[in-house]
Simulated assay, not measured.
Amino acid sequence: MDAKQLLLTRQSTPRLVAPAPNAEQLTFILDAAARVPDHGALTPWEFIIAVDDGLAKLADIFVDAAKKSGADEAFLTKVSNMPYRAPMVITVVAKTQTHDKVPVLEQHIAAGCATMAMQQAAFSIGLGAVWRTGDFAFDANVHQQLGLSEQDQIVGFLYVGMPAVKAPIKPLKNGQQYARYL
């Protein structure tokens, strides 16, 4: 797939099945993430990969956080299944630091760019991916159980696998409608 086709046809793939990316595919996905703009070469990100038993651990973390917030049984059941929406979940964390020239917001954006690059990389090799956030990205219990520090912020959970169905390519949006000139 050439770059132009990738940029104009990329889309989220919410229905994903096994297999998870193999070692070579995962290396490509992670290497693509590490190539995003990174002012100051701070590499303000961490990728926490859940696959196989890791999905069960992530489910336990979500359930524990939901219990601590007073969730009912129906929600706990839903939460326990969330990591299994795909054979791999990559939790992308913005690992920020104080810097004279690189504000925290820019570091969060870099981590977001890394997430988008991983999704595009997956799409380019025939895999599917969907970037989700939700309340658990901001939950202190989830952060603690993932070993994050106080200044760390989850920017998303990237679900990766094989597309369950071949989705039609969405119509191209006209980007000019969102632009204006000074």
Rank of each mutant, 00 (worst) to 15 (best):
P21S: 13
Q25Y: 13
Q177N: 12
V79H: 09
A65V: 06
H143S: 15
D64G: 04
L30I: 10
T91W: 14
D52M: 05
I169R: 02
L58T: 01
L55E: 06
A33F: 08
L58C: 01
G40H: 13
D152L: 04
K68M: 08
L127P: 08
M116L: 15
Q120C: 12
I169C: 00
T9E: 12
A121T: 11
I29V: 11
R15H: 15
I61H: 06
N81R: 09
M116D: 04
G175H: 08
A34W: 02
A86K: 01
Y181R: 14
V160E: 03
Y84M: 14
L146Y: 07
K173G: 04
K173Q: 11
M1E: 05
I169T: 10
R180I: 03
V51T: 14
V93M: 05
Y178G: 04
N141W: 10
Q107W: 03
V79K: 07
M162Y: 12
L8Y: 06
S149I: 02
A65R: 10
F136D: 09
E106K: 04
S124H: 05
I49P: 14
F138I: 07
A23G: 01
P87N: 02
P14Y: 10
Q153M: 10
Q11W: 09
G70N: 10
M88D: 11
Q120N: 15
T43M: 14
I61R: 05
Q145F: 01
K166L: 11
I154Q: 00
T98M: 06
Q107I: 08
A50T: 14
H39I: 00
D2E: 10
R35S: 08
T91D: 12
N141S: 14
P37T: 05
Q119M: 10
D38R: 00
F138T: 06
D31Y: 04
R85V: 01
V92Y: 03
R10N: 12
D31R: 11
M88C: 11
R180Y: 11
L55P: 10
G40D: 01
P14W: 09
E106L: 00
D100M: 07
N174Y: 05
A41N: 12
Y84V: 10
G70H: 06
I109K: 00
P163I: 13
Q145G: 01
T96S: 08
G112L: 11
D152A: 05
R85N: 07
Y84L: 12
A140M: 12
L148C: 07
G175T: 05
L58D: 03
A167G: 11
K4G: 01
V17R: 15
L55W: 06
D52S: 06
A114C: 04
A117F: 03
A32E: 07
A66T: 06
I49W: 09
K67F: 06
F136S: 11
S69W: 12
V160G: 02
D60R: 15
V104W: 00
R180P: 00
L16Q: 09
E46V: 00
